[in-house]
């Protein structure tokens, strides 16, 4: 049905990427740099050398109650991870403010309010998983943008 292994389409190997972020050693940025390295991309320090500039402007997790138990207390929570970023290739650079792009990812989990151990670790695992998903989609977009 026309599928073949990815080869001609998007690829990322030895693409020079200039990554900007407020905290390069935070989990999200650390994992992003790691996966860029695995894909063969090269992180450069000077913008002029880069084929693509990625600015991690802001990201955060919002927690919403989405279901309640019989006594009206929170029974299911939703974590929404939202990333705001700007992505530019040298051709796209112009005076105006580069376009701010957004990417969101959602995870739900049943909330056991009477659990003695709480669900801190579960939430950290869900947040880390949302990081992985958003980073995966970012890599696809970088590959798609660079190869166009």
């Amino acid at each position: 049905c026309g599928f073949q292994l990815r080869g001609q389409g998007a690829e990322l190997s030895n693409t020079k990427v200039w990554l900007i972020s407020q905290d390069m050693s935070a989990e999200f940025e650390r994992r992003l740099q790691q996966r860029l390295a695995y894909q063969g991309a090269e992180l450069v320090k000077q913008p002029e050398l880069s084929e693509l500039q990625l600015a991690i402007v802001n990201y955060g997790v919002e927690r919403r109650t989405v279901a309640r138990d019989s006594l009206g207390r929170a029974a299911e929570l939703e974590l929404i991870f939202t990333l705001e970023y700007q992505m530019l290739t040298p051709e796209m650079v112009s005076e105006q403010e580069p376009e701010m792009q957004r990417m969101t990812s959602r995870r739900e989990f049943a909330y056991e309010r009477n659990l003695e151990s709480g669900q801190e670790r579960e939430q950290q695992r869900l947040i880390a998983d949302m990081h992985e998903e958003v980073i995966g989609r970012l890599l696809l977009q970088i590959a798609g943008t660079v190869s166009r």
Partner: peptide, 12 residues
Amino acid sequence: VYDTSLPTFNFT
């Protein structure tokens, strides 16, 4: 069991 729980089953 001090800080461990059985997480909700999902893709994660």
